[in-house]
């Protein structure tokens, strides 16, 4: 079981990690402590590994800052489920090995603080109000994710996954 952290539409990277707390402003070992510093001040101290972020449309919009995703990675976020994702945030999650899944119904089923289970094999997010359906990722992205990210994939295979 994991806790769901619920967000709305258009959650931008300045909310996930404000630019003034970038690793190069605060240090590589400290920046993650400022995750959701302005938007959800309790997040960084109470989040647990495996917790799932659930959002609406255009999750992760704004800057290209990968350290927003890196902060989530340090906290051990188990996955991000949203109606839709901003493109750079989506790539950054795949590259860093955080499951990133579109779901039309998850945001409506999940309330903040719910106990949820992210079942990647079944393609479901199980919630107290029923199971949300997760849209399958392209095989190319699945292969990178299952290797734990693009760096691990390239180290193991020397090149990108083959295109279909």
């Amino acid at each position: 079981m994991a806790r769901a952290w619920k967000f709305g539409d258009d959650l931008d990277t300045d909310q996930i990690l404000p630019g003034r707390y970038a690793p190069f402003m605060t240090g590589q070992d400290k920046f993650h402590a400022y995750a959701f510093h302005d938007a959800r001040p309790e997040f960084a101290t109470t989040v647990k590994p495996g917790d799932v972020l659930v959002g609406g449309d255009n999750f992760g919009c704004g800057s290209s800052r990968e350290y927003a995703v890196a902060a989530l990675k340090v906290h051990g976020i188990g996955g991000v489920v949203a109606k839709s994702f901003a493109r750079i945030f989506f790539r950054n999650c795949i590259n860093l090995g955080i499951p990133v899944l579109e779901s039309a119904d998850a945001a409506d089923l999940v309330a903040d603080g719910d106990d949820v289970t992210l079942d990647l094999v079944a393609g479901r997010l199980r919630t107290p109000c029923g199971a949300a359906t997760l849209r399958p990722l392209p095989r190319f992205a699945q292969e990178i994710l299952s290797a734990g990210g693009v760096v691990s994939y390239l180290r193991a295979h020397g090149d990108f996954p083959a295109l279909d």
Binding site: S64, R65, E66, Y67, R91, N92, N95, V150, V151, L154
Partner: peptide
Amino acid sequence: AGMGATDIAVALAL
């Protein structure tokens, strides 16, 4: 196109 740091590292390498 803008990308994150790991994408950039991959582009620099490959």
